[in-house]
Write a protein that binds this DNA or RNA. Structure first.
Length: 300
DNA sequence: CGTCTTTGACCGGCGC
DNA sequence: GCGCCGGTCAAAGACG
């Protein structure tokens, strides 16, 4: 059962894998967001390798804020890189800046307003990536929810992110020796899904892709998940005290790091820049944190 | 007892 | 039209 990287259920709560918390042994490498559902966008991002979508403006839409997590006592080195979800297996390592600095892991996210932007939860739930939508109509094109990918250097595949996840599948990835695990938020009303896989080029890197946004407020802390709680608390703090969070991802990361009292080095800090046009206001950008931190928390 | 993981099969999209 | 591949389902088992 517990496979190689999989932390035993007890760790932190059985269901709370998700965030890269150093406490567990890892640091966040990067975060990235992906398109709002259009394949093209995803492709574009891929071209950049690592790009930060949030770049253009407030992260997320207007109302969203975002929040970040930090770890307390985050020991491990962490890196931040943005990676297009689709690029993960293909060019993960390549994109990785390969650098590591001590820092706290942090993540950022923008969260789109829990709006009706998305399709009804029920539908969305099964359609995102969808291939098989039992409840979805056939003609309907699979609508994808915004996705964000994080690259985290960690020995553990599952990192706590404050939410509880239920694993519903695992598959071998074509060009990767490592399997990809599929998780779904345990909240029945929440349509957020998460995919976790290791970079085929750098096994120390875990690529976590979030899809959708949590529709529930709180993070349901798993029984006794210290990390999760810390993460949430940290995120909350950041949200309150760091307005700058509304910055491009890179900056965002830096801020988080600073906020956490640690220095987070962003490999691309300098390049972040050129985000292509698409970087502009992402239509439905959702933030990573968005997935992790409910809107309520962000504003709190 | 309830929750979560594991695992094989199935479904559906996409490329050739 | 066919095959490949990614994503999801669902039953069974394991664990706390």
């Amino acid at each position: 059962m517990e496979d190689k990287n999989r932390a035993p259920r007890g760790s932190g709560g059985s269901g709370g894998p998700g965030w890269p918390f150093p406490g567990d042994g890892g640091g966040i490498l990067s975060l990235d967001e992906i398109c709002g559902g259009e394949r093209e966008e995803a492709s574009i991002l891929s071209e950049f390798g690592w790009s930060i979508p949030l770049d253009s403006g407030p992260i997320g839409e207007d109302d969203d804020g975002f929040s970040g997590f930090g770890l307390e006592g985050a020991p491990g080195p962490s890196e931040t890189v943005v990676a297009p979800p689709e690029a993960k297996s293909d060019q993960p390592a390549a994109a990785l800046p390969a650098r590591s600095s001590d820092a706290v892991s942090s993540s950022s996210s923008e969260e789109p307003p829990p709006e009706p932007d998305e399709k009804p939860a029920e539908t969305a739930t099964q359609c995102h990536s969808g291939f098989r939508n039992k409840s979805t109509k056939k003609g309907q094109k699979r609508s994808r929810e915004p996705r964000f990918a994080f690259m985290t250097r960690s020995e553990i595949d599952h990192l706590e992110d404050g939410y509880r996840w239920r694993k519903y599948g695992q598959k071998a990835v074509k060009n990767s020796p490592f399997p990809r695990s599929y998780y779904r938020c345990t909240n029945s009303k929440c349509t957020v899904k998460k995919r976790v896989e290791r970079s085929s080029e750098d096994s120390t890197i875990v690529i976590t892709t979030y899809e959708g946004q949590h529709s529930h407020h709180t993070v349901s802390f798993p029984r006794g998940s210290v990390h999760a709680q810390n993460a949430a608390a940290f995120a909350e703090r950041l949200a309150v005290s760091t307005p700058q969070l509304y910055l491009p991802a890179m900056q965002f990361h830096q801020n988080l790091a600073v906020g956490a009292g640690q220095l987070l080095q962003t490999p691309h800090g300098e390049h972040q820049p050129s985000l292509p046009a698409r970087t502009s206001p992402l239509p439905t950008d959702e933030g990573l944190l968005g997935d992790m931190v409910p809107p309520g928390m962000r504003n709190r």
